[in-house]
């Protein structure tokens, strides 16, 4: 067993309930490494909704809240407002964050509240048996789109940037070192940090969505279908851009703004 697992994971619950080759374990490892590097195990609080990806923090030896489907962000906002000293990390999936919780994502990003949201995007509803999710690519055959999906997929990063998230990054499971750095930066950033991770679901999405069943092949495909975004880089058509997409340090954070407003009226909070 990995040495960090003994320190940060409830080892009596192992093995995890993820399928063999699932990318959630890689995200879990990246999050552990980032937390270990910052040394903030005691200050952390994790919130998650419903879905495969929402099981990631349930194995952590930290404060964890496993909440309702799609409502992880409202719970996290409430927790952050009640305990501003805690660093709150939210793990959600593409169905959890973009479909049923889409409205909550808009408003959490608009407020620029100090949360670190990790959107684990595997392009499918994995836990319920492989139904079409908002991010499923056009033409993918799933249980609920037997003739191929016709809808235009929703891009979580573009959405978060449009409504005002101040730290937006996208990586894949094939870039574990960069992902760890992004999580670290997101935790340090004061404001709404949104990190999208493209992961593989070899069991439910394997053959129909990606075209491969082997997890290592899917990771290789992720490396080929993405390009590193930097300012001034030419947009490559048909490819997904990854990297740090937005970093804005100047916008004021929600709790600071509330406290300043209350102070100007002579009210003391807490």
């Amino acid at each position: 067993m990995n040495k960090l697992y003994e320190k940060y994971i409830k080892t009596d619950l192992l093995p995890t309930l993820f399928c063999p080759g699932c990318g959630n374990g890689i995200v879990q490892m990246a999050a552990i490494k980032a937390i270990d590097k910052l040394g903030i195990q005691e200050e952390m609080a994790c919130v998650s909704g419903i879905g495969c990806s929402s099981w990631i923090p349930c194995y952590f030896k930290m404060d964890v809240m496993h909440t309702m489907h799609g409502r992880a962000l409202p719970f996290a906002e409430g927790l952050k407002l009640a305990r501003p000293d805690k660093k709150v990390m939210v793990f959600t999936g593409d169905g959890d964050c973009l479909a049923i919780g889409g409205n909550h994502l808009l408003h959490a990003a608009r407020r620029n509240i100090d949360l670190t949201v990790i959107l684990v995007n595997n392009y499918i509803y994995g836990m319920t048996g492989g139904q079409k999710s908002p991010s499923t690519p056009v033409g993918a055959v799933t249980k609920t789109s037997p003739y191929g999906a016709a809808d235009i997929p929703l891009d979580g990063c573009e959405l978060a940037m449009a409504v005002g998230a101040t730290y937006v990054a996208r990586w894949t499971t094939a870039h574990p070192v960069q992902l760890e750095k992004a999580i670290e930066e997101g935790l340090n950033h004061k404001g709404f940090s949104f990190i999208e991770v493209l992961t593989q679901c070899p069991v439910q999405a394997g053959k129909e969505v990606y075209g491969f069943k082997d997890p290592a092949e899917i990771m290789k495909m992720y490396k080929e279908m993405t390009y590193l975004y930097k300012e001034g880089v030419e947009i490559q058509k048909g490819k997904t851009r990854i990297g740090l997409l937005k970093h804005d340090e100047e916008t004021e954070e929600y709790i600071d703004r509330i406290e300043a407003r209350l102070e100007s009226q002579g009210i003391k909070r807490g």
Binding site: M1, N2, K3, L4, Y5, I9, L14, P15, T16, F18, P20, G21, C22, G23, N24, G25, I26, Q28, M29, A30, K33, T173, P176, V177, E180, P215, M219
Partner: peptide, 29 residues
């Protein structure tokens, strides 16, 4: 219940720790 890998060519290991990071179950140290 499935076949597991064996670290046969350990002497070639460069210590990049990519397997540690990419193992979804934290089995490799």
């Amino acid at each position: 219940g499935s076949n597991m890998p064996d670290a046969q060519n350990v002497k070639d290991c460069a210590g990049c720790r990519l397997c540690e990071r990419l193992c979804p179950d934290g089995a490799i140290d």
